[in-house]
Design a protein around this nucleic acid. Structure first.
Lengths: 182, 182
DNA sequence: AGGCTCATGTAACCGGTTACATGATTAT
DNA sequence: ATAATCATGTAACCGGTTACATGAGCCT
């Protein structure tokens, strides 16, 4: 149950609508957590039923009406509890369907595998390129968040870049070894 | 639907029981894909209903009776189709609950974050240590699989090691930056 | 008129986990 | 005796995805 904790996390910054939350996810954590808006609305309902968030209906004349969610004391408590609970395994023991494909690629030709790895390396490169907007975002919202909080944002972005770089290096070395077989 | 394709992959090597498959997953792909035995049995049933595997009941006197599953032509076709379909995004856009925690760690003290990152680095180190048996396994089963197929096994193990090394390096550098704040 | 942003949901489905449940045979 | 290995499953649940469905207001 992690999307709900992400929602609580964003709500510690300020009250938000489901729509706002979807945008926040998209502009800051999307490279390691993609959130469907339908899922966000679902989770907001659950969080409200559990008393972790409160909802206020806001009438608007210029735009459609909306529901503003704010985190409650119980929600804050739950959020901090989640932050403190260990869980490094999550990043380690995770499923990787791509590696499953690599594992069984002995069933296809080196040429086909090279093509797959090539595509992988290119995608990883494109991913890094897609992250280029993050520093701007960090600077933009960082002033509002404060330098301490934005430092952690920076950390996650660094992780993403290191990971992608590692992927590219790994794929290139696999390709080299396969090319020796041609 | 990826466990089912993993099952099909193992069945291209030889006919197996659900029990055998659980052991195979555990001894070769567990560091990037953990499979529950209950789940394996469930998927075998589905695969049989779809005609991708065939089942033969085998009576044994020395051990409990068992069900031997073999891949069908349709299964082989589906397996190759899956291998060919792209999907590099799977390794890239995946969810990472640990990074979610890092992202929001601006809500706790540097000391607490350092402790979390320390644990993460240690866990990553332990993970690499836990992979030490893999080269032996590759050598052991590699002779049976052939050098071409075991090369890909090697690739996945290399990925695991590189990833863990990257994690350790990243965590150490985060810790250093946090220690400057103390 | 057409497309964009704002705004909120429902329903069906699916892959996977957890907990539970059983029982034979072999080795110590 | 008892632990380990061999062997197979069921049921409830849960987090998440996909597809569907709606509609106001703003800008060009």
């Amino acid at each position: 149950m992690s999307l709900s904790h992400g929602i609580l996390g964003f709500l510690t910054y300020s009250g938000m609508t489901g729509y706002d939350l979807a945008k926040s996810f998209d502009s800051s954590v999307s490279f390691f957590w993609h959130a469907q808006n339908s899922h966000i609305y679902l989770e907001l309902g659950k969080l409200e039923r559990r008393g972790f968030v409160a909802c206020e209906r806001i009438q608007q004349t210029d735009k459609p009406n909306k529901k503003l969610y704010t985190i409650t004391d119980a929600g804050r408590e739950e959020f901090l509890r989640w932050l403190a609970e260990g869980g490094a395994e999550e990043a380690l023991g995770g499923k990787n369907a791509f590696l499953m494909r690599v594992f069984f690629s002995g069933n296809v030709s080196p040429e086909q595998s090279i093509a797959m790895l090539r595509r992988f390396a290119d995608d990883a490169g494109a991913y890094v390129a897609g992250m280029s907007g993050i520093p701007q975002n960090i600077e933009k919202y960082g002033a509002y968040l404060g330098s301490y909080k934005s430092l952690y944002w920076q950390f996650t972005a660094d992780f993403g870049r290191s990971y992608m770089a590692m992927c590219v290096e790994w794929a290139e070395s696999c390709i080299k070894r396969l090319e020796e077989l041609l």
